[in-house]
Simulated assay, not measured.
Amino acid sequence: MQSPNLNNVKIDVEYCGACDYGGHCLDLAGVIKKTSPDANVTCKRGRQGSFEVKVNDKLVYSKLQTMALPDYEEVADVVNDVTQGAEPRQIKGQQPINCVIS
């Protein structure tokens, strides 16, 4: 008999298409899959300037608030912790800004 599968963590990423963040979402998904291969990562084109990361429907990172992309390793750590039964927590680490819309 199998125990409940905590590994099926859901990660939804809303990204800015104008900034070409789709590739960043795929990169983030790759980093997450290294430590949590069963995680379900969904990339969705969304609002201008966005890179919003939700883990199990809880917003853990917002580029609209921080004006920077998240640290992918920290996102992967949070997802891995959630697969172990922890609650999703806020991402603090950031990457340099690489898209400016005027």
Results as ranks from 00 to 15, higher is better:
Gly49Asn: 10
Lys34Ala: 15
Asn80Gln: 14
Cys19Gly: 09
Thr66Lys: 03
Val53His: 05
Asp38Glu: 14
Val13Thr: 03
Cys43Ser: 05
Val9Asn: 05
Asp77Ser: 13
Val31Asn: 06
Ile101Asp: 00
Gly46His: 06
Asn7Ile: 12
Leu69His: 05
Asp71Lys: 09
Leu6Asp: 03
Val41Leu: 03
Ile91Val: 14
Leu69Cys: 04
Val100Phe: 14
Arg47Pro: 14
Ala18Ser: 12
Cys25Pro: 04
Tyr61Met: 06
Tyr21Thr: 10
Gly22Arg: 00
Asn8Phe: 05
Lys92Asp: 07
Asn56Asp: 02
Asp38Met: 13
Pro88His: 02
Lys58Asn: 06
Gly30Gln: 08
Gln95Tyr: 09
Ile91Leu: 08
Leu59Ala: 01
Asn8Val: 12
Tyr72Thr: 13
Gly46Arg: 02
Leu64His: 08
Asp12Val: 10
Gly93Tyr: 07
Lys92Ser: 05
Asn98Thr: 15
Gln94Ser: 11
Ala86Gly: 09
Asn98Ser: 12
Cys25Tyr: 09
Asn8Glu: 09
Leu6Pro: 09
Ala86Leu: 09
Val100Lys: 15
Thr83Cys: 01
Gly17Cys: 04
Val78Phe: 05
Gln2Arg: 14
Val9Gln: 03
Cys16Asp: 11
Val31Lys: 11
Gln48Thr: 15
Gly23Lys: 06
Arg89Glu: 06
Asn56His: 00
Tyr72Pro: 06
Lys34Glu: 15
Asn8His: 15
Lys33Cys: 00
Cys19Glu: 07
Ser50Phe: 00
Cys19Tyr: 01
Tyr61Arg: 02
Val53Ile: 07
Val31Leu: 11
Val75Thr: 08
Val79Arg: 04
Lys54Ser: 01
Leu26Cys: 02
Val41Cys: 06
Met1Pro: 11
Pro70Lys: 05
Leu59Lys: 02
Gln84Met: 10
Glu74Gln: 09
Val100Leu: 13
Glu87Val: 13
Ala86Arg: 12
Lys44Asn: 01
Ala18Glu: 12
Thr42Asn: 08
Pro96Gly: 11
Ala76His: 08
